[in-house]
Every structure is written in C-alpha cells, then in structure tokens.
C-alpha cells in the first residue's frame, strides 16, 4: 500500500510528509519531521507527554493518525520560544525547577499554554483539573502548578 502524502502546517511552517496509515502524529513528528520535543510516555492517552495543539485544540498526538492532519494546523513545544526568548511558561518552569527528568515537561507546557489562552487567571483547582491528563513521575506536581500560576501572572502583565 502506497504511503499517504500529507500537507499540513506545523508551528506555522508548511510541511509535507509521507506516512503509513498506522503511524500516529507523534510518530510523524518525532521520526519523520525530527521534532523530538513531544515525548512518548505511554502511547495510550494516559500520560500527556505527547500533547500538541491540533487546530487550536489540545490533544494527545499518540491518539491521532498522521494522515488525519492533512490540511490542518499542528503546534508543538518547538514552536513556543520566539528565537532566543523563552515563553513565560518555559521561563517559569526553569525558575521553579518544575522539572527533573524532563520527559513530561513539553506536554505540561503545551497543555499549560492551552489553559492560559482560555483562562488567563485560573485557580489552583482549575490548573490541577486541566492538567490531570499530564503525568509526572518526578516532581510531585506542586512546582508545576506554581510555575503555571506564575506564568499566568507574567502573561497578564504582558
């Protein structure tokens, strides 16, 4: 069976790639487009390490087929820093030491950004529920929640 020829937008750039039906968007991002920021923690939708935005919606890229993104807009962790300047969430994760091994971090930051775009001033409960699909085996979550809170403050100040 011939591979699918897919055209999509990834982090604002037009990209073309070939994929098999069974390849997930995460496979395509990591193995074909060499965007290895999105991680595979489980490949079953449980850990959120593969979180990306698809047409403005937060999804697990391990639960999307590569061929489904034809004509659509994908945003990954690689698109968040603007040149040398980090996104406020990235900056706050560093300042709060909200990461240890770092496997979960891209997913948390992408998911955190999706939250703050919808809700610029979330409560701690709202942050915890929104991020319930992102698992971290190292930090114990408190530093992550604080980082998201402080990024919200920084972003509101502009």
């Amino acid at each position: 069976m011939a591979k699918h020829h897919i055209e999509a937008t990834v982090n604002g750039d037009d990209v073309e790639f070939l994929c098999e039906t069974e390849e997930t968007l995460l496979d395509v991002l990591r193995d074909t487009l060499h965007l290895t920021g999105s991680k595979e923690g489980c490949a079953s939708g449980d850990c959120g390490a593969c979180s990306v935005m698809l047409d403005g919606r937060l999804v697990c890229s391990c639960l999307v087929l590569g061929c489904e993104v034809s004509g659509r807009r994908v945003e990954t962790i690689e698109g968040m820093a603007k040149g040398e300047s980090l996104h406020p969430l990235q900056q706050q994760f560093l300042e709060h030491a909200a990461l240890q091994c770092g496997i979960c971090t891209p997913g948390f930051i992408v998911a955190g950004k999706a939250l703050l775009e919808r809700n610029p001033n979330p409560t701690e409960t709202e942050i915890r529920y929104w991020l319930a699909g992102n698992l971290c085996r190292c930090t114990g979550y408190d530093k992550i929640v604080s980082a998201v809170k402080d990024a919200a403050v920084a972003m509101r100040k502009g």
């Binding site: 939708g45 959120g48 979180s51 698809l54 919606r57 937060l58 999804v59 697990c60 639960l63 999307v64 998911a111 999706a114 939250l115 929104w130 991020l131 319930a132 699909g133 992102n134």
Partner: peptide, 9 residues
Amino acid sequence: IGSTQVQGR
C-alpha cells in the same frame, strides 16, 4: 470522559 486532551477528541 478522560483528560482535557481526550476531551479534545
């Protein structure tokens, strides 16, 4: 059903 990510799909 599921997480924010799962809700998106």
